[in-house]
Amino acid sequence: MKKISHYILFSILFSLILIIGIGNVYASQSRVIDIRASQFKFEPGRIIVNQGDTVTFKVKTSDVTHGFYIDGYNVDKEVRRGDEVTVTIVADKVGKFKIRCSITCGALHPFMIGEFIVEQGGVNYVFLSSAVGIILVGVSTLLFIWRRDYEYQA
């Protein structure tokens, strides 16, 4: 049991070092991103910025009226054909936020999705910590059950 505790402790420490160690400090930037909305996609589909960046979205539609909504960032704009809608935000929250169409635009409207990913110093900590968490949960579950619940059932 002692060995297992050491193993888990080592894994946690290693993960923490990994998470703390790989991040670099990036200076905030201003970014302008042109987005084209059409049935049923945003182009580009994945937008990756760093925390603290000031991001200006210039959104156009190439077919029907669409909505431009970003989860968690209180952005919800109507984009009509022929217009260009400009939205500026400060990317202060890290993580992955879906960009959605908020105005019914056709059959696949609920699936018209893009992604706005806010990293920290070029690293997606949310995914990294999720992956480390999954590994830790997996390994510790196995070791715990191996020790406690083993039954000879063969």
């Binding site: 049923f40 589909g45 059959a107 696949l108 699936f111 999705i113 992604e115």
Partner: peptide, 15 residues
């Protein structure tokens, strides 16, 4: 639920 619209275009055969 992904951001890759081109896959949806492939799937949406009768669009």
């Amino acid at each position: 639920q992904g951001p890759w619209g081109w896959i949806r275009d492939l799937a949406n055969v009768f669009y």
